Computed example of a mutant assay.
Amino acid sequence: MDVHLAVDADDFVNLCAANKDARLELTADGGLIVMAPASPDGSGRNAELTIQLGIWNKAKRLGKVFDSSSGYTLPDGSIRSPDASWIRSDRWAAVDRAERRRFTHIVPDFVAEVRSPSDGINDVRAKMSEYIAQGVRLGWLIDPETRTVEIYRPDREAEILASPEKISGEDVLPDFILDLAEILAD
């Protein structure tokens, strides 16, 4: 049974505050998305992605890395929470300190989603396209089930890679190479 609940941004903030352990997102039209907690398998894959991104960022000092608990208010009014994200230092520094404590009104430069078995592929693809439409410069949809990575960039069709060993952060994440061995492992 599908249940569609609609809330405004203020109600969403209150709902999140009252349900701190819930994983919630808000669509641009006010639709509430309730997500199941990640399984240990999925959480481990997400952690590996965030660890590698964090190690690269520590060495390069070019920006700020965020895990799956970060929520961003995008220009269309949606509040989304990618599995991993990154924002350039100069852009993050321009965000007011009080705004950083909320669902910050900023579009990440980079986002990644690691698809879990409970995620419908079309839903995750739509989310990735939404990120790009809102200003994300590079996005990865990593699907351990099919061992594929879909790379999303502005003004281009998604590029699908079958069983890649590594992927590049291109010019958005200079010199970052994600090793997919543990993320795509069975």
Results as ranks from 00 to 15, higher is better:
Ser116Val: 08
Leu26Lys: 10
Gly71Lys: 03
Phe12Gln: 08
Ser89Pro: 00
Ala98Arg: 14
Lys20Thr: 12
Ile87Lys: 04
Glu48Gly: 02
Ala47Phe: 13
Arg80Glu: 02
Ala28Val: 01
Ala9Pro: 00
Val124Lys: 14
Ser118Tyr: 07
Leu49Gln: 01
Ala28Ile: 01
Ala18Asp: 13
Glu48His: 10
Ser89Trp: 11
Ile51Pro: 00
Asp83Val: 01
Arg61Met: 09
Asp8Gly: 04
Ile33Glu: 12
Ala47Tyr: 12
Leu74Ala: 08
Phe12Trp: 10
Val111Thr: 12
Asn14Cys: 05
Ser78Pro: 03
Pro117Gln: 10
Lys64Gln: 13
Ala59Val: 04
Pro117Tyr: 09
Asp11Glu: 15
Arg88Gln: 12
Ser69Cys: 03
Ser69Ile: 08
Leu26Thr: 02
Asp11Trp: 02
Lys20Trp: 00
Ser81Met: 10
Asp76His: 10
Asp67Gln: 07
Ile121Glu: 14
Met35Glu: 09
Asp76Ile: 10
Leu74Gln: 09
Ile51Glu: 10
Leu74Arg: 08
Asp29Gly: 03
Leu62Cys: 07
Tyr72Asn: 05
Leu24Thr: 03
Gly31Thr: 09
Asp11Thr: 11
Gly44Trp: 02
Asn122Trp: 09
Met128Ile: 06
Ala38Asp: 11
Asp21His: 13
Ser78Gln: 03
Ser69Arg: 14
Asn57Leu: 05
Leu26Asn: 02
Glu48Gln: 13
Trp86Gly: 01
Val111Pro: 03
Ile121Gln: 11
Asp10Ala: 14
Arg91Leu: 09
Asp41Tyr: 11
Lys127Val: 00
Ser85Asp: 07
Val107Cys: 12
Val124Gln: 13
Pro40Val: 06
Asp123Arg: 15
Gly120Trp: 05
Asp29Asn: 14
Leu32Thr: 03
Val34His: 02
Arg125Cys: 08
Ala17Ile: 00
Arg101Leu: 11
Ala18Asn: 11
Asp67Leu: 04
Arg61Asp: 11
Arg23Lys: 14
Lys64Pro: 00
Asp109Lys: 06
Ser89His: 12
Leu24Cys: 06
